[in-house]
Design a binder for these strands. Structure first.
Length: 122
DNA sequence: ACAGTGACAACAT
DNA sequence: TATGTTGCCACTG
């Protein structure tokens, strides 16, 4: 990514979440050295709505980002909670009736600081 | 420049 | 367990 804005860094991290795993808004913020900026991560995901035309953003697995309780709390997107749950199930992640994921099972380990450092290169 | 906003998180009831 | 409250901070207009 040539851009180094916070949002661009967020998207770069989300692209690294493997299929079958999930992480939380807050953990992504922490990985980027901005603990407490969880709300911005959610806002960045929401902003994807306006970038649907740009192929650059079409392969971002946004569905793998949920809240710290493991629950789906999507809002203001072209998708709804049920659709996100379905996408996660396609990933092989179990989603309960009340739209919750077992973080003990599916939480992504995250990126090491070395990997975070390299995000801007590509 | 600056106040409003939100796909959060932690804590208090 | 389930709501309600408060702090949070980068983006937006």
């Amino acid at each position: 990514m040539t851009e180094s804005s916070f949002y661009q860094q967020i998207y770069a991290v989300v692209l690294h979440i493997p299929r079958g795993k999930v992480t939380s808004y807050g953990r992504i913020a922490s990985m980027l050295g901005a603990p407490g900026a969880a709300r911005q991560v959610g806002y960045a995901m929401s902003a994807l709505r306006y970038k649907a035309d740009d192929s650059k953003y079409n392969n971002i697995p946004w569905q793998r980002v949920i809240n710290s309780q493991g629950k789906i709390t999507i809002k203001g997107s072209r998708f709804n909670k049920l659709q996100q749950a379905e996408l996660l199930r396609e990933d092989g992640v179990e989603v309960s009736e009340d739209l919750k994921v077992d973080l003990d099972k599916y939480l992504w380990g995250g990126l090491s600081w070395q990997e975070i450092e390299k995000l801007g290169e590509s």
